[in-house]
Structures are given as structure tokens and as C-alpha cells.
């Protein structure tokens, strides 16, 4: 019983920390965009215009390629969004560990299935469809 209670605290913390990190990254990203009036190679107008084709398909990660010194506002925002998507994934992973430790095999399998669905959507579908 004691064990389960602790795990619920871990899940609660994981969720909270994920959201906070993500929010900080996004806020810094916006600060950089406003400071530089855009984010290379995009102008502020292109970034804010909802009809422009600046989206997750057309943007590559510049920071990852050129290094952290060319820190780019858009990259920070994207990183924040990735952390946001990763938060529930980590939560599910903690769930697998929790149920395995409790020797609750039925729920270990069920939670692994959920984890598989997530991995399928994140990694396998892009491989199949691209």
C-alpha cells in the first residue's frame, strides 16, 4: 500500500514538472522572437500569420544543427511543445514500472499496450507514412 501511494506522488510530480519546464521554454522562445523580431530564417510576420506555412512539417530544428549559440526562438517553442507531448509518455512509463513492481501483471500488460500505442503514433506511423 505504501508503495502505491508513493508512485501516485511521483506521477503527480512528473506531470507538474513537465508542464512547468515546457511553459518556461515556450516563454523564453517568445521573448527571443520578440527581441529579434523573428527567428531566423523567418520574420515575425511569417511566424504570427496563421495562413503562413511555417509549421512542424516545414521547419527543421536549427538549434540542433547549428548548435546552441544560435539559439532560436522557434526552436525553443518547439522544444517546449515536445516536452509537453513527452510528459504523458513519461507518466505512462512510470505506470508500467509501478504495476510491474506491484506484480500486477494484468495492468503491466495493459499499460505496456498504452505505451505501445504512443510509440506507434510517435515513431512508427511517421516511418510508415513518410
Amino acid at each position: 500500500m505504501k508503495n502505491m501511494v508513493e508512485f501516485e506522488d511521483i506521477i503527480g510530480w512528473a506531470l507538474r514538472i513537465g508542464v512547468i519546464i515546457s511553459a518556461i521554454l515556450i516563454i523564453f522562445g517568445f521573448a527571443l522572437i520578440i527581441m529579434h523580431n523573428g527567428a531566423y530564417p523567418y520574420t515575425m510576420a511569417q511566424l504570427v500569420n496563421p495562413h503562413s506555412n511555417v509549421n512542424t512539417k516545414t521547419i527543421g530544428f536549427h538549434t540542433l544543427i547549428t548548435g546552441i549559440d544560435n539559439l532560436n526562438g522557434v526552436d525553443l517553442i518547439l522544444l517546449g511543445l515536445i516536452v509537453l507531448i513527452a510528459t504523458p509518455v513519461i507518466r505512462v512509463f512510470i505506470g508500467i514500472v509501478q504495476f510491474a513492481k506491484e506484480k500486477d501483471y494484468l495492468y503491466t500488460i495493459i499499460t505496456t499496450l498504452v505505451f505501445f500505442n504512443l510509440m506507434f503514433a510517435i515513431f512508427i506511423i511517421p516511418l510508415i507514412l513518410k
Binding site: 511566424l47 504570427v48 509549421n55 512542424t56 521547419i59 517553442i77 518547439l78 511543445l81 507531448i85 511517421p126
Partner: peptide
């Protein structure tokens, strides 16, 4: 994300 339905800003 993969289909590009997400505009960062």
C-alpha cells in the same frame, strides 16, 4: 506534428 498541423507560435 508529423503532418505539420502545428504552427509553433
Amino acid at each position: 506534428w508529423m503532418y505539420g498541423y502545428i504552427q509553433p507560435v
